[in-house]
Design a protein around this nucleic acid. Structure first.
Lengths: 210, 210
DNA sequence: GCGGCGGTCAACCGAAAGGTTGATGTCCAC
DNA sequence: GTGGACATCAACCTTTCGGTTGACCGCCGC
């Protein structure tokens, strides 16, 4: 890398953007080139090819979700690396982000030097994971039997939001039979026997976000 | 007020503190005197009397909650004004903050100039509310209190822990008919039609703890 | 190629939950 | 002491959910 690492900050909170800029601009090898207040704007800016690393929030107030934007950005050839920077770590979020092609997953409570190190790691083409996130992934590897699949987490997340099987089937373009099938597997893996206890168990294990 | 407005920033995210500092330090009449990464630390610092306004987050990663800290700070004579600065606006959060003596309630997605204006408003002894928050309070005034009774919350809490009506009835020494009766009232008050969506709604409004 | 896994769907049944009506009793406020 | 809010329970009915069995397909690894 000849020049500085060129950064795009994507977060809907002006204060967070200012904080990231303050923290990262002091690093001599970084250059914060632009900011985006929406995921859509981040996708558009990233397509210009003017960035090496995108720092991407997951939750935007409205519109596209961060993981969708990540997928859109990384789909292009010569795309910048995308670093997820969010407040929570749930299996559902982490899997969606990795699936979307994220080059790292950080938590907003990270100290500045950890943040800077992760950006350099991502810029170098390696994966940058927050310790808490890495720990969760290791746990998942160790016990693959009782871990939920991506699809199961997707269903469980919607259950946690209070949707009925009918509503979930429509949201995910499935039949109710398939939703029930997933739920049966989920119950077995979590050792429960109802949707409410599944949500309680999943919340306790931070499998889904509340 | 003779000197500048002296500020204390209380937030567990280094990035957010840096952002607030960056945004507020550019105002000539503000002086960010100190930062606190925990609510406990904020209470201790506020007691020194070296501040005019405290910018307080509600959710800290661990330990005391922001509304508890607010109550502790405002209880003292000659206490600084406390401005809540958080991501979400739930009825329960807002009420707890007002109850605790907060002098304002802002959302983190506020533009910097709105933030600065709110700080000056609070320093002058007036109440500073974000438009979205003010709107919620007006809504609450218009619609009569529809709050859940103690017994209903008790039932809802158990529903949230994943118990069936049968299990709840045994736990509370009731018939299933009574449990169902409570649930019907709960659904009506929350505007939902299933136990899972009731839990989701109650969680979002911080009516029950998870 | 074959088996296993993940994802999809159908049909069926019993159990649980949702919804309604109506009733009793207590407590408190006006 | 009358009305209202809260809590308790019963009977009844409809809908949803939980559980099972069985099936088909695509993908990946051996």
């Amino acid at each position: 890398m000849t020049g500085p690492i060129r950064l795009l900050l994507a977060d809907d909170h002006p204060v967070v953007r200012a904080g990231l800029r303050a923290v990262l601009d002091t690093e001599p090898d970084f250059e914060v080139v632009a900011e985006a207040a929406t995921a859509e704007r981040a996708v558009a800016l990233a397509a210009t090819g003017a960035f090496d690393v995108v720092l991407m929030d997951l939750q935007f107030g409205a519109g596209m979700h961060g993981s969708e934007a990540t997928a859109a950005i990384t789909a292009a050839a010569g795309a910048p690396r995308v670093l997820i920077l969010t407040t929570y770590e749930s299996d559902a979020d982490i899997l969606a982000a990795v699936e979307a092609g994220a080059g790292g997953y950080l938590l907003k409570d990270a100290p500045p030097q950890e943040l800077a190190a992760a950006v350099r790691t991502a810029a170098a083409g390696r994966s940058a994971l927050a310790p808490a996130v890495a720990h969760r992934l290791m746990d998942r590897m160790r016990t693959p039997a009782q871990s939920l699949t991506k699809r199961e987490l997707e269903v469980l997340q919607l259950v946690g939001e209070g949707l009925s099987n009918q509503q979930i089937s429509k949201r995910l373009f499935l039949s109710q039979a398939t939703v029930k099938s997933h739920l049966v597997h989920i119950y077995a893996k979590l050792g429960v026997d109802s949707r409410t206890s599944a949500v309680a168990a999943a919340t306790a294990r931070r499998l889904i976000r509340r």
